[in-house]
Design a protein around this nucleic acid. Structure first.
Length: 890
RNA sequence: GCCAGGGUGGCGAAAUUGGCAGACGCGCCAGACUUAGGAUCUGGUGGAGCAAUCCUUAGGGGUUCGAGUCCCCUCCCUGGUACCA
């Protein structure tokens, strides 16, 4: 077997340049105050979603986003920005713990090995990370600050007046523990008996554990919660200013699920109640208070505590039976399978406050205790579910909204806008007006008030795990207390046995000595979820070595700061700079994309984090912002989700299909530059797309063409600078392509359209290959443009050219990004498209100055046009200057 | 069901404000150089037709001198969510 011949010696030059960059600290971004820091440079923060270092190593999906940010980072450096481009490890998590349970190897050891593996792989791809800023969430020096942030949250409350997080000391009530942003509550959790642990929602798939497929049941347990719901409105509203895809914003809005309406009190009819003492009224939430006259019954969730108080004696047994049956159902059965409505009558009646009618009170499992008030008013005429329920149990159906062009009877089942009917107070009014009026009426008469509800739940923040951050909290006399900051980091105890206890008590409970904090107090034994570390890592990157603060104030202001005037000025200057007179609408459009500096300027990662991670991180950021620790209320200004890369067979990559591509295998054959370029050439970054080895080969051929454009093989088979390269300016046709390429590549990088940027560079290389003379200056421009994509190849060629031809000082990564000159793009002659009735018939070339009349005359003179209009009358001739002529006839 | 995003050659895909559909790459065909080619270079390549010409952006309708692009309807795919009142 003879080894496959390399198209160019990437196997030598790639490791060579990686070493040079490492040793010269080429990509270290200095902080303010640091040596080499240049305050004149604007900042740019390009961030990847840091990976969980699994044992399996990198797959081709990881480097897709990483390559995109790396291109941007390298491009911005060439444009004169001080670029923060860091990488780190999200290393707490279940796999390392499971591995520890099986093998007894400490998770820290597994983590260290996996990190080393990942880092080697990332370095081999040639990413320009500032490795001096590397962070690891499992490092005590890191999680010290994760715990510190938890304490900030613990020591705060949400002031509804200011709509901000404030120190708990500003709370005027009696019981601060009831309003803290971190609190303890008895909540239903996903308990998996087989695994002996609680699982996060996302670890439960169809009622079974993701790992092992064991049954999962709901069970109430004492848990730490974070009051994210207090920030629901801000988390929705402040999305507006962010440069995120609309689809991702929609996902977040959906998840938060804001719903405006009213809370309405339905009094219980005393005569019907089992318990004759004064009963509270039933509060329901509705998004359609305008339909209140159509409320012909009330439904409580089966778990609603009111049920016991109102059920009449004759109904007690059937109600108890129904509740038992529901309790036995899993969540899965209760939602997916329960398409058929079920329910039971309590025997009690309520009074509809709008019309005083006596309406029955039912319980049914289609009403959930966890949303709204756990009770609804049933409006069967205008709610699909209520209609189904009413039909099944033969309840009264009264239409109260008349749909346009329909009779009242036909309007049943119609849920959208219409005019109110059968509703004395609001008859004839539109939905908006009747809603406002009825809410006003309810409020004035003490029957209700406007209300807003959210689907978003408070964040269940504790896990019964070993491999996570311990809570900096102790318990004394049944009450929790924070430990002093001076005791951070609080490290987990050394354990021999990481197994869950099986009782729901966390593994940390086994460390008897560690638990005992003082005579009268014990430590919290829960740990934080994996999300904790990833909620703020982007802040730590700004100042990863600081042991005084979670991030230094000056560093935070600089990297995460609001208006970066330098950046804005630079963009404006660039736009109006005299040497680039051709400021087209194109340039302006791209400039506006950069007009909002601040926070992380570009954040790229998988769409799987569109909701949870991004919501949690925004929440923490807002708390820290409110408390005065941060400069801006939002962390990530521009967010992009890369699409998934599928296997060559078009299926999702998995061991099962045997279609997994290992980046290092690809790099072995084609080199890192080809790997990077192919990942970007495949198609739009955000799109899902299949891998193709043939495609890699095509891109590899392109890079080899660049190499051979400048290099040739001598008799001895060594690569040397081509003798044809001359220190001459490019000729006119090459200049034109060159400047068109500068323009296109620059614009495409700004919009992350890397695939078309590479296409354009291919066109340029084809043109330069066919050029009569090999111009050094044209090559140098090409190399700079290509550098962010193929950094090793271009570095090597740049240096080789520099050795022979003076005039370009320094390495390629220190060069300025080229500007295009519109003058080279101007045509002196223009090709005009000739159409007859909108169909292409011919083309003519005219001078740039040709008048519309001249163009029209030229068009009508064309034999092909004449042929096409033969025998018809010309009705009209449309002339679009510099573009086309359309002759309309018939 | 609801929300969001898609549907363009044999394949991955291009297409500023509506203005030459298919750039660039893969694959394929032909040629050159070669002992050889899975190397390299040159040319061709949406479909039908010998041709002139006709057809073509999921399907149908509309606006327009002109529609992949704008509007309406239908179908299909992907992601999210699902009795959220």
């Amino acid at each position: 077997m003879n080894e496959r011949r390399k198209p160019y010696p990437f196997d030598e030059i790639e490791p060579k340049w990686q070493t040079i960059w490492d040793e010269s600290r080429a990509f270290h971004a200095p902080n303010p105050g640091e040596e080499n820091f240049d305050p004149a440079k604007p900042k740019y923060y390009a961030l990847d979603m840091f990976p969980y270092p699994s044992g399996a190593g990198l797959h081709v999906g990881h480097p897709e986003g990483y390559t995109a940010t790396d291109i941007i980072a390298r491009y911005k450096r060439l444009r004169g920005f001080n670029v923060l481009h860091p990488m780190g490890w999200d290393a707490f998590g279940l796999p390392a713990e499971q591995y520890a349970i099986k093998t007894g190897q400490h998770p820290a050891v597994t983590t260290r090995d996996n990190v080393a593996k990942f880092k080697t792989q990332l370095k081999r791809i040639g990413f320009s990370y500032d490795w001096e800023r590397e962070v690891n969430t499992t490092d005590p020096a890191y999680y010290k600050w994760t715990q510190w942030i938890f304490l900030q949250i613990y020591h705060s409350w949400f002031n509804p007046e200011s709509k901000k997080a404030e120190p708990i000391s500003t709370f005027r009530g009696d019981d601060p523990d009831s309003v803290r942003l971190a609190y303890v509550a008895e909540v239903p959790v996903n308990w998996c008996q087989e695994l002996g642990t609680v699982l996060a929602n996302e670890e439960v798939i169809d009622g079974k554990s993701e790992v092992g497929g064991f049954p999962v049941v709901r069970r109430p347990m004492r848990q730490w919660m974070l009051r994210i719901t207090a920030f629901a409105d801000r988390l929705i509203d402040e999305l507006d200013e962010l440069d995120w895809a609309d689809s991702i914003k929609a996902l977040q809005r959906n998840w938060i699920g804001r719903s405006e309406g009213a809370e309405i009190a339905f009094a219980i009819d005393q005569a019907s109640a089992r318990d004759s003492r004064a009963l509270p009224s039933i509060r329901v939430f509705t998004s359609r208070p305008d339909t209140i006259y159509g409320a012909t019954y009330v439904v409580l969730a089966p778990e609603n505590p009111l049920v016991d108080q109102i059920t009449t004696d004759d109904r007690r047994e059937s109600i108890a039976q129904y509740r038992t049956a529901i309790a036995a159902k899993s969540d899965l059965e209760r939602t997916d399978l329960a398409k058929e409505k079920t329910g039971a009558f309590t025997g009690a009646f309520a009074i509809n406050p709008a019309n005083g009618e006596r309406i029955p009170i039912w319980i049914a499992d289609y009403v959930l205790m966890g949303y709204g008030t756990g009770a609804i008013m049933g409006v069967p005429a205008h709610d699909e579910r209520d209609l189904e329920f009413a039909r099944k149990f033969d309840l009264k159906i009264v239409p109260v909204v008349q749909a346009p062009g329909k009779t009242p009877e036909e309007s049943i089942g119609f849920v959208d806008d219409g005019l109110a009917i059968n509703s004395p107070l609001i008859n004839g009014l539109s939905r908006a007006k009747s809603t406002a009026k009825i809410i006003d009426w309810l409020e004035k008469n003490g029957h209700g008030r406007p209300d807003i509800r959210y689907k978003l739940r408070d964040w269940l923040f504790s896990r019964q795990r070993y491999w996570g951050e311990p809570f900096p909290v102790i318990w004394r006399d049944g009450k929790h207390e924070a430990i002093p900051e001076s005791e951070l980091p609080l490290e987990p105890p050394a354990l021999e046995d990481f197994k869950p206890t099986g009782t729901g008590e966390p593994p940390l409970a086994k460390a008897k000595d560690w638990i005992r904090y003082s005579q009268s107090s014990v430590r919290e034994t829960n740990t934080m979820p994996q999300w904790a570390g990833s909620c703020w890592y982007y802040l730590r990157f700004c100042d990863s070595k600081n042991d005084e603060r979670f991030v230094g104030e000056e560093a935070e202001r600089y990297w995460m700061g609001g208006d970066n005037d330098e950046a804005r000025m630079t963009n404006d200057e660039r736009m109006t700079k005299p040497e680039s007179p051709g400021t087209s609408s194109f340039d302006i459009r791209h400039s506006t994309l950069r007009a909002k500096p601040g926070g992380v300027d570009l954040y790229i990662g998988g769409v799987e984090h569109a909701v949870l991670h991004l919501l949690y991180a925004r929440f923490w950021h807002k708390v820290l912002f409110d408390l005065g620790h941060l400069s801006k209320p939002e962390p990530f200004q521009r967010l992009v989700n890369q699409g998934m890369i599928l296997g060559e067979d078009g299926r999702k990559m998995s061991k099962r299909w045997g279609n997994v591509i290992d980046p290092l295998d690809v790099i072995e054959i084609y080199g890192a530059d080809a790997f990077r370029c192919y990942e970007m050439f495949m198609g739009p970054l955000e799109q899902m797309k299949p891998w193709s080895m043939k495609g890699v080969e095509g891109v590899s051929r392109f890079l080899a063409r660049v190499w051979r454009l400048i290099m040739e093989e001598n008799q001895a088979g060594e690569w040397i600078l081509s003798g044809e390269v001359e220190d001459v300016p490019p000729e006119k046709p090459q200049l034109k392509v060159l400047h068109a390429t500068i323009k296109k590549v620059t614009g495409d990088i700004e919009t992350l359209s890397f695939n078309t940027a590479i296409s354009q560079m291919m066109i340029l290389v084809n043109a330069l290959t066919n050029a009569p003379k090999k111009s050094v200056s044209a090559f140098r421009t090409l190399l700079v443009l290509l550098n962010p994509f193929a950094p090793h190849l271009t570095s090597e060629l740049w240096r080789t050219l520099s050795d022979k031809f003076p005039g370009a000082d320094g390495e390629i990564i220190a060069q300025p990004w080229p500007d295009h000159d519109e003058a080279f793009l101007v045509e002196d002659e223009i090709e005009i498209v000739l159409q007859v009735n909108g169909k292409l018939r011919d083309k003519v070339t005219v001078s740039l100055e040709a008048t519309n009349a001249q163009i029209e005359a030229a068009a009508l003179a064309s034999p092909k046009v004449q042929n096409a209009i033969a025998g018809q009358t010309i009705r009209k001739v449309v002339v679009v200057p510099k573009k086309l002529v359309n002759v309309v006839c018939g």
